[in-house]
Measured scan of single mutants.
Amino acid sequence: EINVTSHGEEQAKHWIELAKRMNLDVEVEIHGDKIIITIK
């Protein structure tokens, strides 16, 4: 399980695309200006 804290939408999209390509599950939480991505 990987937790990524992203401070930008572009960076977040990059991680989500990467996870989808690798067929991994992704959870995205938004806390103000921080985007927390959990890849399982």
Score class of each variant (00 low, 15 high):
residue 24 L to M: 04
residue 20 K to N: 10
residue 1 E to T: 13
residue 23 N to P: 04
residue 13 K to V: 07
residue 40 K to I: 06
residue 26 V to M: 06
residue 5 T to K: 10
residue 2 I to L: 08
residue 5 T to E: 08
residue 13 K to H: 08
residue 39 I to H: 01
residue 19 A to V: 10
residue 20 K to L: 15
residue 14 H to L: 06
residue 13 K to S: 06
residue 18 L to I: 11
residue 35 I to C: 04
residue 40 K to M: 06
residue 40 K to D: 02
residue 2 I to H: 06
residue 13 K to M: 10
residue 30 I to S: 02
residue 19 A to M: 12
residue 19 A to N: 13
residue 31 H to L: 09
residue 7 H to V: 12
residue 9 E to K: 07
residue 6 S to H: 12
residue 20 K to T: 08
residue 24 L to F: 07
residue 9 E to T: 06
residue 39 I to L: 03
residue 29 E to W: 05
residue 4 V to Q: 09
residue 37 I to K: 00
residue 4 V to D: 04
residue 34 K to W: 13
residue 17 E to D: 11
residue 35 I to T: 02
residue 5 T to M: 03
residue 34 K to R: 09
residue 39 I to T: 01
residue 6 S to V: 15
residue 19 A to W: 09
residue 18 L to F: 06
residue 4 V to S: 07
residue 14 H to T: 06
residue 16 I to E: 15
residue 9 E to S: 08
residue 35 I to A: 01
residue 16 I to N: 05
residue 34 K to L: 14
residue 18 L to E: 03
residue 23 N to K: 08
residue 22 M to Q: 03
residue 8 G to L: 15
residue 39 I to W: 01
residue 36 I to L: 04
residue 31 H to V: 11
residue 6 S to L: 14
residue 34 K to E: 05
residue 22 M to F: 08
residue 17 E to C: 08
residue 40 K to G: 02
residue 9 E to F: 14
residue 20 K to S: 06
residue 39 I to A: 01
residue 19 A to Q: 05
residue 11 Q to P: 06
residue 21 R to L: 15
residue 15 W to Q: 13
residue 20 K to H: 07
residue 28 V to E: 00
residue 19 A to C: 15
residue 12 A to R: 06
residue 37 I to H: 00
residue 12 A to H: 10
residue 27 E to A: 08
residue 2 I to Q: 11
residue 20 K to Y: 14
residue 12 A to I: 15
residue 14 H to Y: 11
residue 11 Q to R: 08
residue 8 G to W: 15
residue 9 E to P: 09
residue 32 G to Y: 12
residue 35 I to D: 00
residue 19 A to D: 13
residue 13 K to N: 12
residue 36 I to G: 01
residue 22 M to D: 01
residue 10 E to M: 08
residue 29 E to H: 09
residue 5 T to W: 01
residue 25 D to Y: 15
residue 25 D to G: 04
residue 14 H to Q: 11
residue 22 M to H: 03
residue 3 N to M: 12
residue 34 K to T: 08
residue 6 S to D: 08
residue 24 L to E: 01
residue 40 K to S: 04
residue 30 I to W: 06
residue 24 L to D: 01
residue 16 I to S: 02
residue 34 K to C: 12
residue 37 I to A: 01
residue 20 K to M: 13
residue 3 N to Q: 13
residue 27 E to L: 11
residue 33 D to T: 06
residue 37 I to V: 05
residue 4 V to L: 11
residue 40 K to W: 06
residue 31 H to Q: 08
residue 12 A to Q: 04
residue 25 D to R: 14
residue 30 I to P: 01
residue 18 L to Q: 04
residue 37 I to S: 00
residue 27 E to F: 11
residue 22 M to C: 15
residue 3 N to E: 10
residue 22 M to S: 03
residue 13 K to Q: 04
residue 1 E to N: 09
residue 31 H to I: 12
residue 10 E to N: 07
residue 16 I to M: 05
residue 33 D to N: 10
residue 28 V to D: 00
residue 25 D to A: 10
residue 11 Q to H: 11
residue 40 K to E: 03
residue 9 E to H: 09
residue 3 N to L: 10
residue 38 T to F: 04
residue 22 M to K: 01
residue 30 I to F: 05
residue 22 M to G: 03
residue 28 V to N: 00
residue 8 G to T: 12
residue 25 D to I: 15
residue 26 V to F: 13
residue 12 A to S: 04
residue 37 I to F: 01
residue 14 H to E: 07
residue 23 N to E: 04
residue 30 I to H: 02
residue 35 I to S: 00
residue 34 K to N: 05
residue 15 W to T: 06
residue 23 N to S: 08
residue 37 I to Y: 00
residue 5 T to Y: 00
residue 13 K to I: 07
residue 40 K to H: 04
residue 32 G to S: 10
residue 39 I to E: 00
residue 5 T to D: 11
residue 20 K to C: 14
residue 2 I to A: 07
residue 25 D to L: 10
residue 27 E to P: 00
residue 38 T to P: 00
residue 6 S to K: 09
residue 38 T to K: 06
residue 32 G to M: 08
residue 15 W to H: 13
residue 26 V to A: 02
residue 6 S to F: 08
residue 26 V to G: 01
residue 9 E to W: 15
residue 3 N to A: 07
residue 22 M to L: 13
residue 15 W to L: 13
residue 18 L to W: 09
residue 32 G to P: 08
residue 19 A to R: 03
residue 26 V to R: 00
residue 2 I to K: 10
residue 3 N to S: 07
residue 5 T to F: 01
